[in-house]
Computed example of a mutant assay.
Amino acid sequence: MMKFADKLSFLQGAGQLSSVGKWFAILVGILCLVWSALGIYWSNEPAQFDVVSAAKQQAEQRGYLNNSKKLVVGYTTANTLYAMVDTLLEKPGGFLNNDIMPPGVFMDNIPAWEFGVLVQVRDMSRALRKDFSRSQSQSTEDSNLKVVEPQFNFDNNSWALPSSEGEYRRGNDELLKYLDRLAVRGDAGAQFYARSDNLQNWL
């Protein structure tokens, strides 16, 4: 009789475990659906933008666009760099290269796209620092751009302490300061030398 009772108790316990397993499976299924939906949404490549219009909009918001609606030389180039980094950080899902949680950790297309953009960002920030902002190679470096370049070259896989996003955001803040100074004509402003040799070095 005791053996039968033990068997009955075991079956009841197994039934409870089976019920827990079902709820666990449902929870996992819901998480997978949510992650899949987010992954699909985050996989949309950001839209292209008109670099001149974006630069004029930025200059107007910052109060630097005069009545002639003309931008100072170099403003469109530097603002395009700023917009590229801003897109990396603010697009749906944010910066995914350093994600350690689903669905970002399972994605590859957008992180690969991000790295391609990051390579261009690093090349342009280096060209701005070394060439475009200096009249000669011996000239003093721009105070903002010498911060911008190393910030954009920070490890793109760092999740925290510090995070890649935080370092890139700091670099973009410094780039915005350069843009503000570039828009101010005169000795107090930053410089952009649109020479063919500078363009050749960048390319």
Rank of each mutant, 00 (worst) to 15 (best):
M2T: 14
K3E: 15
F10A: 14
G15R: 12
L17M: 15
S19R: 12
S19W: 09
G21S: 15
F24S: 12
F24V: 15
V28W: 10
L31Q: 05
L31E: 06
C32R: 07
C32K: 11
V34L: 04
W35R: 06
L38A: 10
I40G: 09
I40F: 13
W42L: 10
W42V: 14
Q48G: 15
Q48E: 15
D50F: 08
V52G: 03
A55I: 15
K56R: 09
Q57L: 14
Q58E: 12
Q58G: 05
A59T: 07
A59C: 07
A59K: 08
E60G: 04
E60W: 14
R62V: 10
G63P: 10
G63N: 06
L65H: 08
L65Y: 08
N66Q: 15
N66F: 14
N67P: 05
K69Y: 12
K69R: 14
K70H: 10
L71R: 07
L71C: 08
V73S: 15
G74Q: 08
G74W: 08
T76C: 10
T77Y: 15
T77A: 10
T77W: 10
A78W: 04
N79P: 03
N79S: 13
L81A: 10
L81M: 09
M84Y: 09
M84L: 09
V85H: 04
D86P: 10
L89G: 07
E90R: 11
K91A: 04
K91R: 06
K91C: 02
K91S: 03
P92Q: 06
P92N: 07
F95R: 12
N97S: 11
N98Q: 08
D99A: 11
D99H: 14
D99K: 12
M101I: 14
P102S: 03
P103C: 05
P103I: 01
P103R: 01
G104A: 06
G104L: 02
F106T: 04
M107Q: 13
D108I: 14
D108H: 13
N109M: 12
I110P: 02
I110L: 08
W113C: 01
E114H: 02
D123C: 07
M124K: 01
S125V: 04
R126N: 05
L128C: 02
F132E: 03
F132K: 11
S135H: 08
S137I: 04
S139Y: 02
E141W: 09
S143E: 15
S143P: 06
N144I: 00
N144H: 02
K146T: 11
V148D: 00
E149A: 11
E149Y: 08
P150Q: 00
P150M: 00
Q151W: 09
Q151I: 08
F152D: 00
N153T: 04
F154V: 00
D155Y: 06
N156I: 08
N156W: 07
N157V: 05
S158N: 06
S158T: 04
S158H: 03
W159S: 07
S163E: 00
S163M: 00
S163I: 00
S164D: 01
E167K: 14
E167R: 14
R169S: 11
R170P: 02
L175D: 00
L176H: 09
R181C: 01
L182A: 05
A183D: 01
V184W: 01
V184G: 02
G186C: 01
G189A: 01
A190D: 08
Q191Y: 07
A194K: 09
R195M: 09
R195F: 06
D197T: 12
D197M: 04
N198F: 03
N198M: 14
